[in-house]
Amino acid sequence: MNPSSLEHSTAAREESAPHKATTSPILEIEGLCKTYGTGFRTLKILHNVDLKLHAGDTCAVVGPSGSGKSTLLGLCAGLDRATSGSVRLLGRPLEDLDEDQRAALRNEGVGFVFQSFQLLPTLTALENVLVPLELSGISGARAQACAILERVGLGGRFHHYPLQLSGGEQQRVALARAFIRRPRILFADEPTGNLDADTSAPIVEMLFEMNRAHGTALVLVTHDPALAARACRIVRMRAGSIERETTHERP
């Protein structure tokens, strides 16, 4: 972990969220379990997972397919409810929040990037980026959305629909959308999983640059060892549990 980066980002967050204690974790999960009932059988996806992340942290979740990485990410982000255990995101216990309160929390301080981009197909690139702002009632943010699209290199693609963009371009729109509200934590589910190495590189750079610039905590689910190695912490999952956790300095 880079202490100076952490200090910088914490200070940055304090400006916009003065009610948060600087030392409190941004994500804290304890004894997290998730099971699915499929007909007559019960499928255990996650078992007793603990994890703690502070502002500015970068964490890569790795492990074989079916080890529960994406489920963990979804539970951390409040996309789903845990069967047992607790998730505290941005200082708020998710189990105490209803669907809409969790949605509000996501809109306020959480960003997402998905392997399959998950852009709204009927909206242009610009409109896709504007959605999080519009959802929070902020209008007149068009210039801001254009600026962020320019930053990700899509200056000439404002009015293109997702289908008219390449995979890399779509992921850059998703990145712009994820960062438009300057989230305090960003969850990325295999962000380069659908992209080749050349296209992936700038995406990864942007992710980490945003982490550095704004102190955004980064949770990455990935199969890519090189990408995982860029994170300060690597959580290795197997069969729904954390098998091993390693921490190292930011390269």
Partner: peptide, 20 residues
Amino acid sequence: MNDPENSGAGTGRAGAPAAR
């Protein structure tokens, strides 16, 4: 990257559409 000027968005849902 420019910081978005979104300080108007509070921590609650006051500004969000259709929250009531």
